[in-house]
């Protein structure tokens, strides 16, 4: 009798420890026991319900949620900028982007990476969460070769990998969302919850769009994306000098007529240039430039107006 009491206590402690370790394991375990007829279905749900802790920060936004945020952010950007419709150029940019993606730290996102050119003379590039990447015609015109364009795309891919867009969401919005979701047992919402969740969704989009289009990322995130760009381009086989060249063009144009887009949302190109050159010096095996790339770049952008 005494023994069975101790076993009972030990068993309890074991369950508690394991349930604290992982809610998903708890759910699986309860599910298996329910199937085996050891626990009633109602009890299973209750075990799962109590074991499920609320999510806390941006790091716990699921891949699917990131995709829906990214889609809507992309839609808002596209409501502000018209699309530059040039199928062969769009295909070229997507192929170049894909070549870098397979050499990046995050080659897979929920629905993959996709690139679109915006019909604007403003110099700008933006990455919505989950891999919706935009570059303006104005930026394309400033690139002299494939190395420069590769560096810009790799910088944006770096933002997606490091989830910089999601990091711009105010924590209070996530807390509200997770609280609301935590109370729901299924993925289908009633009118009241849906209205509440849509309201928070709009605020989340506001945070991300404001960062991408108006305020810009935190300086440290731009430096991080530059560092990632250097490494992704080198891994793909590009000369990392493409980023220095691009920042050189931006530094030369700073203070001139161009004030919007890139200039509004990015830290000084001159400062970034110094940090990029330092990063390049740390690389021992630097790929050489090749005329074949410059030639195809010139063919692709020929006729751009």
């Amino acid at each position: 009798m005494r023994n069975s009491g101790s076993i009972l206590k030990i068993s309890f402690v074991c369950i508690l420890v394991f349930s604290m370790m992982s809610c998903s394991i708890m759910e699986q375990g309860a599910g298996v026991l329910s199937e085996a007829g050891l626990v009633k279905k109602d009890d299973t749900q209750s075990i799962v319900k109590t074991s499920k802790a609320l999510r806390k920060g941006f790091g716990e936004i699921t891949e699917e949620e990131e995709y829906y945020i990214g889609r809507a952010v992309a839609a808002v950007i596209l409501s502000r900028y018209p699309v530059y419709e040039n199928n062969s150029l769009t295909k070229y940019v997507n192929t170049l982007g894909s070549a870098i993606i397979v050499h990046s730290d995050r080659p897979e996102t929920y629905a993959g990476y996709h690139f679109l050119i915006l019909d604007s003379d403003e110099i700008n590039a933006m990455a919505a969460p989950s891999g919706f990447i935009f570059i303006t015609k104005g930026l394309l015109k400033r690139c002299r070769d494939e190395e420069m364009l590769a560096a810009v795309l790799a910088h944006e891919i770096g933002h997606v990998y490091a989830k910089h867009g999601l990091k711009s969401i105010k924590k209070s919005r996530l807390v509200d969302t997770f609280k609301l979701i935590g109370q729901e047992a299924v993925g289908r919402y009633g009118p009241q919850e849906l209205a509440q969740l849509t309201g928070i969704f709009e605020e989340v989009l506001g945070d991300v769009v404001d960062t991408l289009v108006e305020r810009g990322y935190d300086r440290k995130y731009e430096y991080e994306a530059d560092r990632l760009s250097v490494h992704y381009t080198v891994k793909t086989g590009y000369n990392p000098g493409g980023l220095s060249d691009f920042l050189g063009v931006m530094a030369a144009e700073a203070g001139g007529d161009s004030t919007g887009g890139w200039f509004k949302t990015h830290p000084s190109a001159k400062d970034r240039l110094k940090s990029v050159e330092k990063e390049i010096l740390s690389i021992t095996d630097i790929p050489a430039r090749h005329a074949a790339r410059t030639n195809r770049f010139k063919r692709a952008v020929k006729g751009i107006k």
Partner: peptide, 13 residues
């Protein structure tokens, strides 16, 4: 942390 299975289709969907 977040349980991808339990959260599938939930939240922003």
């Amino acid at each position: 942390s977040a349980d991808e299975i339990a959260l599938a289709g939930k939240g922003f969907n």
